[in-house]
Amino acid sequence: MAKKKTISKSDLITFFMDHVLMHDHKPKSVYAFAKAHNFDEAKFYEHYGSFEALEQSIFKTFFDNTHSILNKSEEYQSFDARNKLLSFYFTFFENLTANRSYVVYALGNHKEQMKSLKTLSQLKSSFNNYIEQLGINMLDLKQDRLEKIQNRGLKESTWLQLLITIKFWLDDTSPSFEKTDIFIEKSINTGFDLIDTTPLQSIIDLGKFMIREKIRMN
């Protein structure tokens, strides 16, 4: 049988996921993997330098699929940051659920150490960029250094929230993972309520006004 001439990233991801779910371990080598799926080993390296790189790209693919679906929705485009993030979560976890067996294989043995998993590094990068583009209202600190610290804190806290939600979903045994849906809604809303800058910004503005007026009166 002639070997396949064209192999895409999507093909490699499908072959890899099928292999680990059937055998409960990664392929022994790229050579064996290529031979099993009837393509030249060099085709693998056109897309990935290792199985580890392929694994990382799988979770980024879940993100990319989610982002693509959302961007096609006119309703999503009209949402504020809170509802955009809620939509992202619900759609992202639909993607995870459709591939739950693989996600459990990839993360199930590392639920306590997910924050440091290299497997999620590409997902983290894409998710952080997404958070940055949401335009979440933060305090106007008027100092670049402080605003950078604030933005970094937002990215780290939202990433940690995503990891906690993934762990909750991995442990969830409710029908259709309905408890995860409830957890998503409550945690996202609580998070936005905690960073709601309107009351605090008003207090800061009042303080500035009082200081200015005191200086003028003196």
Rank of each mutant, 00 (worst) to 15 (best):
M1K: 11
A2P: 03
A2L: 02
K3D: 06
K5E: 14
T6S: 15
T6G: 07
I7N: 05
D11A: 05
L12C: 01
L12I: 08
T14V: 03
F15M: 11
F15I: 12
M17Q: 10
H19K: 12
L21Y: 15
L21V: 15
H23E: 15
D24W: 15
D24G: 06
H25G: 04
P27T: 15
K28F: 09
K28Y: 14
S29W: 15
Y31G: 03
F33I: 15
K35G: 10
F39W: 14
F44Y: 12
Y45E: 08
Y48I: 00
S50E: 12
E52A: 09
A53S: 03
L54I: 00
L54C: 00
E55W: 08
Q56E: 13
Q56P: 00
I58P: 00
K60V: 04
F62T: 06
D64N: 10
D64G: 06
N65C: 05
H67F: 08
S68W: 03
I69T: 11
I69A: 06
I69E: 12
L70I: 06
L70A: 08
N71P: 01
E75Y: 03
Q77W: 06
D80N: 03
D80Y: 02
R82C: 06
N83I: 04
K84L: 00
L85R: 05
L85Q: 11
L85S: 02
L86F: 04
F88K: 02
Y89E: 09
F92I: 09
L96R: 09
L96T: 08
A98Q: 08
R100H: 09
R100I: 10
V104K: 07
Y105F: 12
G108Y: 02
K111H: 01
K111F: 00
K115A: 14
S116Q: 13
T119Y: 04
T119F: 06
S121K: 01
K124Q: 14
S125I: 12
N128E: 12
Y130M: 00
I131L: 05
I131H: 07
I131Q: 07
Q133E: 11
Q133T: 01
L134T: 00
L134F: 00
I136Q: 06
I136E: 12
N137R: 08
N137A: 03
D140E: 11
L141Q: 08
L141G: 02
K142L: 02
Q143A: 04
D144A: 06
K148C: 01
I149R: 06
I149V: 08
I149D: 03
R152A: 07
L154R: 02
L154T: 10
K155A: 03
K155E: 09
Q161K: 07
L162F: 13
I164C: 06
I164V: 05
T165L: 09
K167G: 03
D171L: 02
D171S: 11
D172A: 05
S174D: 15
P175K: 10
S176T: 12
K179S: 13
T180K: 08
T180A: 04
I182C: 13
F183S: 08
I184Q: 14
K186C: 10
K186A: 14
N189I: 10
N189H: 13
T190P: 07
T190K: 09
D193M: 11
L194H: 14
L194K: 13
I195H: 10
I195G: 12
D196N: 15
Q201A: 11
I204N: 13
D205S: 10
M210A: 08
E213P: 01
E213F: 08
K214A: 10
R216D: 05
M217K: 13
M217E: 13
